[in-house]
Amino acid sequence: MRHSIYIYILLMALVTYAIRALPILAFTREIRSPFFKSFLYYVPYAALASMTFPAILTATASPISGLLAFVVALWMAYRKKSLLLVALSACGAVFLAERGMDLARAMQLI
């Protein structure tokens, strides 16, 4: 079934804005439930984690370079490097890995 890109975008924008504007309009008391606060605290980490793996394995030309990028990014992030440096390191790892694989293929090693 074909979906309209504009309806997709409209829905995204409406939901996102409603979420952000409702508390300002509704004057409701602050939510103090420890469970809910904890849940909302964990959501972004869970979301980003689930979007990263295993998707990173299939984002590149080969799952091997994807896996390497994953490991390199994990290491750089663990070392608290900047957002940009982590991203570029992952990209660099993919580039080098794929060129290496091209070379190995050309030399008929794999």
Partner: peptide
């Protein structure tokens, strides 16, 4: 294409840079 393949992991790198340090 070869640059795009490398850059495609950039977002995942950024995601990891956000979730790992804390």
């Amino acid at each position: 294409a070869m640059i795009l393949s490398a850059l495609s992991v950039a977002i995942y790198g950024m995601f990891l840079a956000i979730i790992i340090p804390p």
